[in-house]
Nucleic acid binder design. Structure first.
Length: 414
DNA sequence: CGTCCACAGGAATGACGGGCGG
DNA sequence: CCGCCCGTCATTCCTGTGGACG
């Protein structure tokens, strides 16, 4: 046993001729230089600078797709501001909250509380109560507080804009402190979801982040690669392939960096001393594979059953299934497990969730006289489904199960 | 050209577990 | 310990609808 591991460890230690420092390639790493974002840095810097003189800065709204450097720029500028503020002895503090990870208004506010050193339980209080504590805490601190709300769109779409409404009005009730908001959104249409008053007070300034093109991504990767890889351990072709692949997909720098890192790991594992295009291709598959397996594992029992139903239907039907058929098979599978099935209404939203995760593909179609429904296709490799579900203690036997309702609907419909 | 299928998907409501302050 | 409030998941009830059929 230990010899196997010894081998692996030894290989790992001897084979460090690829990476110099792989941390640099993680997307939470904040480099001291952000290529091709000088304009945005200047813009945000100019907007925020007044806080150094103790006045409130304008609220800013930042737009841009994922991996365009919004978060990095915001963190970069604000941490520099905070640093400068210390130098000038200006009472400035900034707080970064990722709304998507926080998940609810409550947790966003509790994030704010934490950053100003106010304790709140992670549930139990009313949202209003937590908000009051934020306000009280801020007022005693006597500071200029900059709140960065990342991925606001995720929160607004689910919960509405009440959080933003409260925040934009907080200054009216504060005597000793001032609050500025930096909102970051991945969705350019966010303003459609917002109350116009909220929107106008929030976007006193707007900054737009265009996606990177392939050559810009190339430069970004080059900067990082210098730090991350040993000299000559990365072929130029591999680098530009990473850039090209990511550019094709919304110009996402995060994706480009992931590709590069995983490609490096692939090369390392293969004992190669140079990262090649081949390794990048493999990294691409690898990342996708992991994403799907991870997603499949974390599904709830019912979501898994829904997916499995589509799997069975696709096997029998070749082409895609419709909601009613899926519900029949799903209900049968539930019966096999002795679980009470959810309603069709609920199944419908589960299907939508699976769709937005990219595990299914659902499209509304009309069959005229024969109703209007959703055509649902499996978007996941069947082998992966088998691989993941077969090892599940409860679902295992259902993977090979022959559903009775598979043939029944064909008789009763038509 | 209206009908009517087979659902989509919004709104309201309820069950449940977690955590508060008193 | 209680009453209260929260977020999450699920149900019930509902109105809306694209287009083949008659």
């Amino acid at each position: 046993m230990s010899n196997i591991l010894d081998g692996i460890f030894k290989k790992c230690i001897n084979n460090n001729n690829i990476f110099k420092n792989r941390e640099v390639l993680r997307h939470d790493y904040l480099p001291d230089k952000l290529p091709h974002r000088e304009e945005q840095i200047t813009q945000l810097g100019e907007t925020v600078a007044p806080v150094l003189k103790g006045s409130r800065s304008s609220n800013v709204f930042i737009y841009g797709k994922t991996g365009t450097g919004k978060t990095a720029v915001a963190k970069y500028v604000l941490s520099h501001v905070e640093f400068k503020a210390k130098e000038f002895n200006a009472p400035v503090k900034f707080c970064y909250v990722n709304c998507c990870m926080a998940g609810s208004e409550y947790r966003v506010f509790s994030g704010l509380c934490q950053s100003i050193g106010v304790y709140v339980p992670f549930t139990g209080l009313s949202v209003g109560e937590v908000f009051d504590r934020v306000r009280a805490g801020l007022d005693t601190l006597k500071i200029v507080f900059i709140v960065v709300l990342d991925e606001i769109d995720a929160l607004v779409k689910v919960r509405g804009d009440s959080l933003l409404y409260e925040l934009t009005r907080i200054n009216e009730t504060l005597c000793n402190s001032k609050v500025s908001i930096v909102g970051i959104s991945n969705d350019l249409r966010l303003k459609e979801f917002l109350d116009p008053r909220v929107f106008s007070s929030l976007s006193e300034e707007e900054i737009v982040f265009r996606p990177y093109d392939a050559s810009e991504l190339g430069n970004i990767l080059l900067e990082r690669a210098k730090l991350a890889f040993h000299e000559g351990a990365l072929s130029e072709a591999a680098l530009s392939l990473c850039a090209a692949l990511a550019a094709a997909e919304h110009g996402d720098a995060r994706r480009a960096l992931d590709l590069l890192r995983v490609a490096g790991e692939v090369a390392e594992r293969k004992g190669s001393s140079v990262v090649t295009e081949e390794h990048v291709r493999e990294a691409e598959k690898h990342i996708e594979h992991n994403r799907v397996v991870e997603a499949l594992r974390n599904l709830t029992l019912h979501s898994k059953l829904v997916l499995l139903s589509v799997y069975h239907l696709n096997r029998a039907n070749v082409h895609s299934a419709i909601t009613g058929e899926i519900y029949d098979v799903y209900a049968e599978l539930c019966g096999e497990l002795g679980v009470t099935p959810l309603t069709q209404r609920r199944l419908s939203t589960l299907v939508n969730e699976l769709d937005s995760m990219g595990l299914l593909n659902a499209k509304i179609i009309s069959m005229g006289r024969y109703g209007r429904t959703k055509k649902i296709r499996l978007e996941t490799a069947r082998t992966l489904i088998r691989e993941v579900f077969a090892s599940d203690t409860r679902l295992g036997r259902l993977v090979e199960y022959e559903a009775k309702s598979l043939s029944k609907p064909a008789n009763s419909r038509s």
